[in-house]
Design a protein around this nucleic acid. Structure first.
Lengths: 344, 344
DNA sequence: CCTCGTGATTAACACGCGTTAGTTATATTA
DNA sequence: TAATATAACTAACGCGTGTTAATCACGAGG
């Protein structure tokens, strides 16, 4: 039934050996092949509809032509992430040009080590990108010692792994400083994720730093942890309001979470930006379309994906860059969700 | 350098043959193995950190343990799709339970045939799911004849491929009928995508059918084609307004596109639902959080993913269901974006 | 005329695993 | 006791490719 066509079939039809077929189709320049012979082989391959078997090729050449993208979250947190498609878009685009494939995987916190080992040792992939790594990931050490290249999309202090990220701390500080310049003194903060995710910690630190530079005392009561989705933003803002915390502005470290914040605020009749100013983080496509348009930190998502890929490709060629970290620039996009306390 | 551990190493350490190792680790029940021997093997494997090489296993067993998900769009249309993560979430969840991998791929319209052939003939995957297929896809015939199982996420009339979908036509008709019941007679329609995507055509047909049943004459001037993203919704609504078309309601066949419609309407000072009622399609997580909350057709995204997967698994076991199509139910979720023309 | 390269091609091995057919050693039966 | 069955294991082949080392023809050089 399974009438698979092998390189032997091509060789037979072209009247040459299997070796020659291999040389021609991989255009191996170290060996001289007569142009007419090459043409005969190519014609035979096309006529038969021959495609070299991926597994056999991977086994022989020790290259799977697949790279892995690991998401360090459970599926229910993946489902509502508007940031993921942007990363995927950028990655898929870059991959196709090198005719490589993308193997998508997720790990639940707690299961990391086993997954990493299986994925690397079994050699499903030639290299891997780890999205939003966690500080408390017990599998990272294993990744440092593995023999396939790894790129972190995000930063882990003290890790020897290469990484691509933005300066979350500086970006958050800029965002919060903007609120302070507008005259706000009571500024709440809702993180993008749980604190073991370094991006969450760094953005929170940026918030603290901005306060400190302005001489504002940090109030832990004004800080809440969300986790990726809209609902968590809604929940945490509700909780702030329910406790009667006083604030005139919020720094929400994720646009998606900020959408929940919008909803919670409007539900109790507070207007943005007149009653509460909001600054987000990510600049997802939606942010400029909602009302009021969200002032936010622009994350260069597509570029993060592409840079991660290019870095990974360099590592796969054993071409190690002198710097471990690639830092991409962000910028604060001013829109309509913030207003000044002073000039009013 | 690459000190890979093979099953031979495990065999040596355990003092048995490689065959025995294979039997134990795949717990092959057709052959009797003494429990103590099995334990010895397992201990050796664990001690060495052995993981069977994926390519070798795939080559020998003719099973890659990967399934492919193909998205029939260019990356820029993938980047802003809030529906995709839901599908991915559902799929990844199901896959992990069978320790299978997900190979993600996109095809640009025009390149389909080559991609399908390469993916199936080269046997990168054991089966594939094709997301949002296009009527004009010249590669579909090739997929019908391929020897690996294929499931369409969406429906192609006349195709012999198995599919999982909702009844787009009926769902759209229900949505539009709801607007008609509220007294609307001038109802615009903005599609979710270009018409070669069957979901777009079917939803448009549902719109037409509802009008027809109510005795409202179909006006092509009120119909626009969007393509997946927010911006296209904004653009098409602007175009409707610029041409001075008269309408009191819009049926937008995608929630994401509807977000752009919201933006365009608010920009010209039209209020939802007082000036224009809006009904969407998909029920993405955001839809219940925006203001006004969007009345929409609920797509069971997670279930579509899981059913597609289960169907694919059945096909892979040569267990062919009697029905080619799996139809999942939708329901209209009533929220605040529509209002009656009559009772006001 | 024989050697010696050189351009063109191929035989043969390796990759790491699954699996069939076969081989022992031990227990069962007539 | 000899024939037979059964439990426990293994030798050896095949999967389809990449690649090294070897082969062959053939004209140039001595």
């Amino acid at each position: 039934m399974s009438n698979r066509i092998t390189s032997q079939d091509v060789a037979d039809l072209a009247g040459v050996s299997r070796t020659t077929v291999s040389f021609v189709l991989n255009d191996e320049k170290r060996f001289a092949i007569r142009p007419e012979t090459a043409e005969k082989v190519r014609a035979a391959a096309k006529q038969l509809g021959y495609f070299p078997n991926a597994s056999a090729r991977a086994l022989a050449s020790n290259q799977t032509k697949n790279i892995g993208l690991i998401i360090t979250r459970a599926p229910r947190y993946i489902s509502s992430d508007p940031f993921l498609p942007q990363i995927l878009g950028g990655l898929l685009d870059a991959l196709k040009q090198n005719s490589q494939g993308l193997l998508l995987e997720w790990v639940e916190p707690g299961q990391q080590l086993q997954t990493y080992l299986e994925l690397t040792r079994a050699h499903h992939i030639d290299g891997l990108i780890l999205m939003t790594p966690r500080l408390d990931d017990p599998g990272l050490k294993a990744l440092e010692e593995t023999d396939i290249p790894v790129v972190l999309m995000g930063y882990i202090p003290g890790s020897s792994l290469h990484s691509v990220d933005v300066d979350n701390l500086a970006a958050a500080e800029t965002a919060v400083s903007h609120l302070i310049e507008l005259g706000h003194r009571c500024i709440a903060c809702i993180t993008n994720a749980a604190l073991p995710y370094t991006s969450a910690t760094q953005r929170l630190d940026g918030y603290k730093l901005a306060l400190q530079k302005a001489g504002i005392v940090f109030n832990p009561e004004l800080v809440r942890e969300a986790d990726f989705d809209i609902q968590s933003g809604y929940r945490e803002m509700k909780s702030l309001l329910a406790e009667g915390q006083e604030f005139t502005a919020v720094f929400v470290a994720s646009d998606n979470v900020a959408l929940g914040v919008y909803s919670a605020l409007s539900e109790v009749g507070l207007s943005i930006p007149d009653d509460v100013s909001v600054v987000g983080f990510d600049d997802i496509p939606l942010s400029s379309y909602i009302k009021p348009a969200l002032t936010t930190v622009r994350m260069p998502a597509r570029e993060i994906a592409q840079q991660s890929y290019h870095l990974l490709m360099r590592l796969m060629k054993r071409d190690f860059p002198d710097k471990r970290e690639v830092m991409l620039p962000t910028n604060l996009v001013l829109r309509q969700s913030t207003c000044s306390l002073i000039s009013l």
